[in-house]
Design a binder for these strands. Structure first.
Length: 577
DNA sequence: AAGCACCCCAACCGCTCGATC
DNA sequence: TGATCGAGCGGTTGGGGTGCT
């Protein structure tokens, strides 16, 4: 504890703080029979008393602690103290780079669900350390995660950096599309939330206490949903051996939506994406203008492509905000920092210190598109930032699937210079050709990015980005990153491979993107064979690989996510519950 | 050395949810 | 079925630490 602990620091606890009347009745002792309970920092003596009590009576029934132990603390305070400081196997110290990545990924999926993140990260740390069972069984503290996140957000907002590394975006997007493929389109938010939220991540400590006695198997399998063959296939396509596949995107629009949201340094991978810098000046300006101000908007589905980004950042941080509630006032800390960067594409590369968020809000609120979009921010509750964004991506995809939506889409031209301003249309007239939202090929692309993008597992904090070499090695693409504080570009690769300026939100809107990928798209028969193969032995081997723990621990964070997502398959193959 | 701003984090606070009666 | 209670969660606060001017 950094706070000084003073034995004399007694305060009167407001009566409404402790719900249990038994506390006030039994306070007794020096408290004089009133509701005088101590507040403030805990002393070591109090800690000892609490530890002793828990040893004796176990966790729970916190309001009885005072009664039985003589502690003049309310049960709430006792529980918090125990959970955050006294409980065994609590993680101490700062987060490692890997843990930071994990937190960010979990936050992208869950939003501000700190306790769930703490529990979930506990699971993943276990997966990462199958070889060291019992060594890294410490759980994160939700409060610590929360503090870390809040601090990180502030830091990144100041630095003008996006909150989520691109890999997280891809991962979340891939999961979202997984839901689409397996559950269907427009089924609400039953998608990946099922995996990360619906299912229980509450991990009984008792399970882990017996880990060492069960080495060789996966002793802990949380309640996980069945994994469909298609999703397994997608995972397979996302495995490293398929990373030569380019990001062929039946749902490119969805992907784009995410890319727009996360124009982080190193954001996105893909060959042939060009930044606006590579266009003729007027063209680039045109795209930039249309991208930010006159985006295609579907009044029927209320889908707004570009402003989903901003709006998502403002009103859908984790779904807790009302979908219909206009966003105004201060931006919550959870918001991605990139939101304001989007308002100023001209300064994207040399990201300046963050502009005032208020001004961004003003901009958003003044935007008719944004205003309209607010009516449909029906993002799932409890979802993460990315969830909210992916929700919009789903809507886009579903709109594309339905003729009525399409017509609505076309009619949306009345909302602005959409025909001219659509960045999609201008530089990618072939979008429609890839419109097979339920094709597993779409997944393969996102899986490639999200799961086959090993991040540097050491040394760097998460504010840094993974070296592009890893992406390049796996995808054949070069990731150029030149944000304010990070430049990873390999000079050699810059000379030999197409360059993608991923620091820009428009990085994925390049004209040569479909060209670069078309070769893969055309060879769908070969892909079909690959699918068949994946459903066979390769799939099993893939998951065995995951089960062995090597993928999660040695190949980095992206595969760590893969390991988690594939746990159901691992369990099935291992005959585990 | 003083003042200031910012960071970090433990603890508080209000609220929600589920169980029980 | 509604009230009550216990437990937990997420947001916020407040104070010490730290670095800069």
């Amino acid at each position: 504890m950094k706070r000084k602990t003073t034995e004399s620091e007694d305060e009167v606890l407001p009566k409404d703080q402790c719900e249990s009347p038994s506390i006030t009745e039994s306070s007794g002792g020096s408290a004089g029979g009133g509701a005088v309970l101590k507040k403030g920092p805990w002393t070591s003596a109090e800690d000892a008393i609490l530890v002793e009590y828990v040893k004796k009576h176990g966790e729970g029934n916190w309001n009885a602690v005072q009664k039985h132990s003589g502690l003049f603390r309310c049960g709430k305070s006792c529980r918090l103290r125990w959970a955050n400081h006294l409980r065994p196997n609590l993680k101490k110290g700062t987060f490692t780079a890997e843990e930071e990545r994990l937190i960010i990924e979990l936050h992208a999926k869950m939003g501000n669900k700190w306790a769930r993140m703490a529990a979930h990260s506990f699971c993943l740390s276990y997966l990462d350390d199958l070889d060291d069972l019992g060594v890294n069984m410490n759980r994160f503290k939700d409060n610590e995660i929360k503090n870390y996140w809040n601090t990180r957000i502030k830091r990144r907002q100041r630095a003008g950096l996006p909150l989520y590394p691109p890999e997280v975006c891809f991962q979340a997007l891939q999961e979202s599309q997984h839901d689409q493929d397996t559950v269907g389109v427009n089924v609400g938010d039953g998608g990946h939330h099922n995996l990360l939220q619906t299912n229980s991540y509450e991990i009984p400590d008792v399970i882990f206490e017996s880990l060492k006695a069960n080495q060789g198997v996966l002793p802990y399998i949380p309640e996980l949903p069945d994994i469909s063959a298609s999703s397994m296939l997608l995972k397979g396509l996302g495995s490293p051996q398929y990373c030569t596949l380019p990001p062929i995107l039946p749902q490119q629009k969805c992907l784009q939506a995410s890319f727009e949201l996360f124009p982080s340094p190193g954001a996105g991978v893909g060959n042939g994406f060009s930044s606006f810098e590579q266009f003729p000046d007027d063209t680039g300006d045109k795209v930039a203008q249309s991208f930010g101000l006159s985006y295609p908007f579907d009044p029927a589905t209320k889908n707004s492509r570009s402003f989903a980004v901003i709006q998502g950042g403002h009103s859908l941080p984790n779904g807790n905000s009302s979908a219909s509630k206009p966003t105004s006032g201060a931006v919550k800390l959870e918001l991605p920092s990139l939101q304001y960067a989007e308002t100023d594409f001209g300064s994207w590369v040399a990201s300046p210190p963050s502009p005032l968020l208020e001004s961004v809000d003003a901009f958003i609120q003044s935007s008719p598109v944004a205003v309209t979009f607010e009516a449909d921010c029906s993002s799932p509750r409890n979802s993460g930032l990315l969830d909210a964004l992916l929700h919009e991506a789903k809507n886009l995809s579903s709109a594309k699937n339905h003729p009525s939506d399409k017509s609505s889409n076309s009619s949306s031209a009345t909302h602005g210079d959409i025909a001219d301003s659509s960045a999609f249309n201008i530089y990618n007239p072939e979008w429609g050709e890839y419109g097979d939202p339920i094709s597993p090929f779409g997944h393969s692309a996102t899986s490639i990015f999200s799961e086959c993008t090993p991040l540097s597992a050491s040394g760097s904090s998460l504010d840094e980005q993974p070296p592009p070499e890893t992406l390049t090695a796996m995808t054949g693409f070069t990731v150029k990153s030149e944000p304010v504080d990070q430049v990873w570009t390999s000079e050699r690769e810059k000379e030999t491979t197409p360059r993608l300026d991923l620091t820009r939100p428009d990085a994925l809107l390049g004209a040569d993107w479909p060209e670069q990928s078309s070769g893969y798209i055309k060879d769908q028969s070969a892909m079909s064979e690959a699918i068949a193969t994946l459903l066979g032995d390769d799939l099993a081997s893939d998951y065995k690989h995951v089960a062995s723990g090597t993928s999660a621990s040695s190949q980095g964070w992206g595969l760590n996510c893969c390991a988690w997502n594939n746990m159901p398959a691992v369990c099935q193959m291992s005959g585990l519950p």
